[in-house]
């Protein structure tokens, strides 16, 4: 494997969790709900996923555990913002705080444990995928699931009837309600999907990327995923560009540290966050571009009258 392939593969593994979490949040926001708790759902996914992977001695169970953990946490968010019509921003923040705390409790017994397996364990089903090059073979299945999810979400939003309803709910919940669609139910499903995606992304971090459990190991990736949705102006395929851009910045930072460049390590570690700010400023400055795809009722409370 040449150096380029090796570096590219690390970029893929840094980008995959961002892509998956951002795809989930994109669907949530398209339904008109702003869930700022991605960071919390991701860290819960990391803790539950790692715990499940060790307990059942199975990576698959780990990923499922992460998804279930993320979805359960997002359900609490859903009950509050949908049934109790709470402020979505504040509730999302509460979710992040709760997630960080609970994940610490769940992960504590597993601190210091490492997962022995490498991505090679998946070869049983990576082998069945036609090998185009070492990159394709080297990517882990979750990276492929990320791509599949991207295509699935894009198709769902643009071409399926259910996706049309979801967008209608996000743009004009009152009209959708009048037409007889259950706005709160659609939003609940979207939120649970977002929670499962964030959970899977978190499980990927703790099971494949690091691979061990550490408190607050998501280190702001959930927030970066939120920024990516803005960056992508709510268009799924642009998320791919954004996720890989940020993955590359993250990896660049590690290589710069390794190459003994005379820049303080802390400065390099700040790069992904500074890049997020820069990107947000640039994207938001051109209002018109983003506006067309922004869900019209994003973040607004909807209480159906009966």
């Amino acid at each position: 494997m040449d150096t380029f392939t090796a570096i590219f593969l690390t970029v893929v593994s840094a980008s995959t969790p961002l892509l998956i979490a951002a795809l989930g949040e994109l669907v949530v926001e398209k339904s008109g709900v702003l869930n700022l708790g991605v960071e919390g759902m991701m860290i819960i996914g990391a803790a539950c996923g790692f715990a499940a992977a060790i307990t059942f001695d199975s990576l698959i169970m780990g990923f499922i555990g992460g998804m279930v953990g993320g979805a359960i946490l997002s359900y609490f968010f859903a009950v509050l913002v949908l049934n109790f019509a709470t402020n979505q921003v504040a509730t999302g923040l509460a979710l992040t705080m709760l997630g960080l705390g609970v994940s610490g409790l769940i992960g504590e017994p597993f601190a210091g444990v490492t997962i022995q397996s490498s991505p090679m364990e998946f070869l049983s089903f990576v082998g069945e995928i036609p090998v185009i090059g070492p990159i394709l073979l080297g990517m882990d299945p979750i990276a492929y699931i990320g791509f599949a999810l991207l295509i699935g979400v894009a198709w769902f939003l643009n071409s399926s009837r259910a996706g049309l309803i979801l967008r209608a709910v996000g743009d004009s919940p009152t009209s959708a309600h009048t037409l007889g669609y259950d706005v709160l139910r659609v939003r609940l499903y979207a939120i649970l999907f977002g929670g499962a995606c964030a959970g899977l992304a978190g499980a990927y971090l703790s099971i494949i990327y690091t691979p061990f459990w550490a408190r607050e190991m998501t280190a702001g990736r959930g927030w970066i995923a939120l920024a990516l949705v803005v960056f992508a102006s709510w268009l799924p395929f642009r998320l791919l560009v954004g996720a890989y851009l940020f993955g590359a910045v993250t990896i660049l930072q590690f290589h710069a540290q390794g190459a003994q460049i005379a820049i303080p390590q802390q400065f390099m570690a700040s790069m992904p966050y500074l890049a997020t700010v820069a990107v947000l400023v640039i994207i938001s400055a051109s209002r018109n571009r983003a506006k067309a795809n922004t869900p019209a009722s994003l973040g607004r409370v909807f209480v159906p009258d009966r």
Binding site: T86, A94, L98, R215
Partner: peptide, 24 residues
């Protein structure tokens, strides 16, 4: 574990937000 404090704080904010619904 120290994280229990974080859980308490998160739960508290959750219920504050839910109970505020009772005002309106």
């Amino acid at each position: 574990p120290g994280d229990a404090t974080g859980v308490f704080q998160g739960i508290l904010l959750f219920f504050i937000l839910a109970c505020d619904t009772l005002i309106k």
